[in-house]
Design a protein around this nucleic acid. Structure first.
Length: 276
DNA sequence: CAGACAACCTGCTTGC
DNA sequence: TGCAAGCAGGTTGTCT
């Protein structure tokens, strides 16, 4: 999502904000808190959370939850669906002051929508990026896409719970959800119900996590139902899933039927013979 | 501390 | 065709 927003948000100004629902916002809920009048400077990410940082420091943190979408609409375009759009930002390309010293009129330049039918997602507002990293993001572990054995090892050593439960805990590691936890464990050949403290090859697990996320990001993510990037494009990594959504089907490595069950209160699929 | 469970929501699929 | 139950990518709080 961050990548798909890179060529439409940084450098754009927020002309106005429409709030259709405010109960999905935490922190200040005014147009000012929601970046009205700001120019977007950059996009940051930690785990599953995105930060939109304005040049004056104001920062929005967005979490998509299960069904959330951030959609960019070019000027004049209409969204595929108009329901459940909770926030809408009108964007403009700021006027460059020409050589005559006179500022041109800002050019209207599309809209950004936050749509979230299930409302498990949300938006958090901050006066500065540091305020976000010092509070909300301070609760997150290191980013899964760049995890190293030095970081992960100590966090697993004392964890007497299934490795899958530890990997889903965002304070241990930020960025894995139910799909990619199962995929990474299969790639690392580790059983999901093995105790975290008993995982031998943490380096292999880290490599599997990074590889899984890297491939998924290249494929534009996994679209089971709702997920689309900011251009409305679906991902296709679901076609490459080794285990997730494939319970009962043959393991792509050994051909035996994949097991499906519940671990850490989440649907879990794994290969009993490949993952020991 | 770990784990079970419920709650927060909507919408799609399944089974009757 | 209709209806109810079951299930879903996530997080958080309560209770044991």
């Amino acid at each position: 999502m961050r990548r798909s927003l890179l060529d439409v948000l940084p450098g754009r100004a927020v002309v106005s904000v429409t709030r259709r629902r405010t109960d999905i916002i935490e922190g200040g809920r005014t147009g000012r808190h929601l970046l009205r009048g700001a120019v977007v400077d950059r996009l940051e990410r930690r785990g599953k959370q995105l930060a939109i940082v304005a040049a004056d420091g104001r920062t929005l943190c967005v979490h998509l939850g299960m069904s959330g979408q951030l959609l960019h609409l070019p000027r004049g375009a209409a969204p595929a669906r108009a329901d459940h759009i909770h926030l809408e930002w009108r964007l403009a390309t700021p006027a460059a002051s020409g050589s005559n010293g006179r500022a041109d009129r800002p050019q209207s330049d599309g809209r950004l929508l936050f749509r979230d039918p299930r409302r498990f997602g949300g938006v958090w507002t901050f006066a500065s990026y540091a305020e976000l990293t010092d509070t909300r993001w301070s609760l997150l572990g290191p980013d899964a896409a760049e995890i190293s054995p030095d970081q992960l090892g100590p966090r697993l050593e004392r964890a007497r719970r299934p490795i899958k439960a530890a990997l889903l805990d965002q304070s241990v590691l930020a960025g894995l959800g139910n799909i990619y936890a199962d995929e990474a464990l299969h790639l690392a050949r580790i059983a999901p119900d093995r105790l975290a403290c008993d995982v031998r090859d943490v380096a292999a697990l880290c490599a599997a996590i990074r590889a899984t996320l890297g491939r998924a990001i290249e494929a534009g993510g996994s679209t089971l139902r709702d997920y689309v990037d900011s251009r409305g494009e679906s991902g296709w990594f679901q076609l490459k899933h080794a285990v997730y959504g494939r319970g009962g089907e043959p393991c792509r490595s050994c051909g035996r039927a994949l097991r499906s069950g519940s671990i850490a209160q989440r649907t879990t699929v794994w290969c009993k013979s490949c993952q020991q």
